[in-house]
Amino acid sequence: MWLIEKAAWKPCVRRNAKGERVQLDRGQFHTSLRNLGEAWSWGKNKVARFLERLEDHEMIGTVAGQSGCTITICNYDVYQDARDSSDQDGGTVAGQSRDTQEEGKEYTSVSKDTSVVMPRASEKGHRIPANWHPGPLPATVAALVAQWPPGREERELEGFRDYWEARTRDAARSDWDKVWHNRIRDQHDRVLRENRNGSGNFNSGGRSGVAEAIHTARDRLGLSR
Score class of each variant (00 low, 15 high):
Val47Gly: 03
Ala48Ile: 07
Arg49Met: 14
Leu51His: 08
Glu52Met: 14
Glu52Arg: 15
Leu54Phe: 14
Glu55Gln: 15
Asp56Tyr: 13
Asp56Leu: 15
Asp56Met: 15
Asp56Gly: 14
Asp56Lys: 13
Asp56Val: 15
Glu58Ile: 13
Glu58Pro: 11
Glu58Gln: 15
Ile60Arg: 04
Gly61Ser: 14
Thr62Glu: 09
Thr62Tyr: 06
Val63Phe: 05
Val63Glu: 12
Val63Asn: 00
Ala64Met: 02
Gln66Asp: 13
Ser67His: 09
Ser67Gln: 04
Ser67Arg: 03
Gly68Met: 05
Cys69Glu: 02
Cys69Ala: 06
Cys69Asp: 08
Ile71Asp: 03
Ile73Trp: 06
Cys74Val: 14
Cys74Asp: 02
Asn75Trp: 03
Asn75Arg: 14
Tyr76Ser: 08
Asp77Trp: 08
Val78Arg: 12
Val78Tyr: 13
Tyr79Gly: 00
Tyr79Leu: 01
Tyr79Asp: 10
Gln80Phe: 00
Asp81Leu: 10
Ala82Ile: 01
Ala82Thr: 02
Ala82Glu: 08
Arg83Met: 01
Ser86Glu: 15
Asp87Glu: 11
Asp89Met: 09
Asp89Tyr: 07
Asp89Pro: 03
Gly90Leu: 12
Gly91Asn: 12
Thr92Glu: 01
Gln96Trp: 02
Ser97Met: 10
Ser97Gln: 10
Arg98Gln: 11
Asp99Cys: 11
Gln101Asn: 12
Glu102Cys: 07
Glu103Pro: 01
Glu103Cys: 01
Glu103Val: 00
Gly104Phe: 04
Gly104Ser: 02
Gly104Thr: 00
Glu106Asp: 11
Glu106Ile: 09
Glu106Val: 11
Tyr107Asp: 00
Tyr107Val: 00
Tyr107Trp: 05
Thr108Gln: 02
Ser109Val: 09
Ser109Gln: 02
Ser109Phe: 06
Val110Ile: 12
Val110Phe: 05
Ser111Tyr: 01
Ser111Lys: 04
Lys112Cys: 11
Thr114Gly: 07
Thr114Cys: 10
Ser115Phe: 03
Ser115Met: 07
Val116Tyr: 04
Val116Cys: 09
Val117Trp: 03
Met118Arg: 09
Met118Ala: 05
Met118Leu: 11
Pro119Glu: 04
Pro119Asn: 03
Pro119Ile: 04
Pro119Met: 07
Pro119His: 09
Arg120Trp: 01
Ser122Met: 06
Glu123Met: 12
Glu123Ala: 11
Lys124Thr: 14
Lys124Arg: 14
Gly125Cys: 06
Gly125His: 06
Gly125Tyr: 01
His126Ile: 02
Arg127Tyr: 06
Pro129Ile: 01
Pro129Ala: 08
Pro129His: 09
Pro129Asn: 04
Ala130Leu: 07
Trp132Thr: 05
Trp132Phe: 10
His133Trp: 03
His133Val: 00
Pro134Lys: 06
Pro134Thr: 00
Pro134Asp: 04
Pro136Glu: 14
Pro136Gln: 11
Pro138Tyr: 12
Pro138Lys: 13
Ala139Met: 12
Thr140Leu: 06
Val141Pro: 04
Ala142Ser: 15
Ala143Trp: 00
Ala143Thr: 09
Ala143Leu: 01
Val145Lys: 09
Ala146Trp: 05
Gln147Trp: 07
Pro149Gln: 07
Gly151Ser: 10
Gly151Glu: 06
Arg152Tyr: 14
Arg152Lys: 13
Glu154Leu: 11
Arg155Tyr: 11
Arg155Pro: 09
Arg155Cys: 07
Glu156Val: 06
Glu156Phe: 01
Glu156Asp: 12
Leu157Ala: 03
Leu157Phe: 13
Glu158Arg: 11
Glu158Trp: 10
Glu158Pro: 00
